[in-house]
Amino acid sequence: MKTDKSLDCYGLFCPMPIIKAAEKLKEMASGEILEIISTDEGIERDMLAWCEMTGNEFINIERENDIIKVYVRKK
């Protein structure tokens, strides 16, 4: 998937990934896609909830072993 920015949240636990994602998205332009690389099992539900609340778009989630990649489009 084509992404504009990538955020490494490897080894970080709740709430750090969503805080870092929120910070990163602030710097980005509307429509750009952010990739969040995480090992936190809760990130799927959390990013879904986060997107629902903030109005950003949850695009996709990919898993490779213990790595979880979440894709979010900035509103």
Binding site: C14, P15, I18, I19, A21, A22, E23, W50, M53, T54
Partner: peptide, 11 residues
């Protein structure tokens, strides 16, 4: 955790 998480959601 709650406070910072909430702030990141625009609360």
């Amino acid at each position: 955790n709650l406070a910072t998480g909430a702030a990141s959601m625009g609360i």
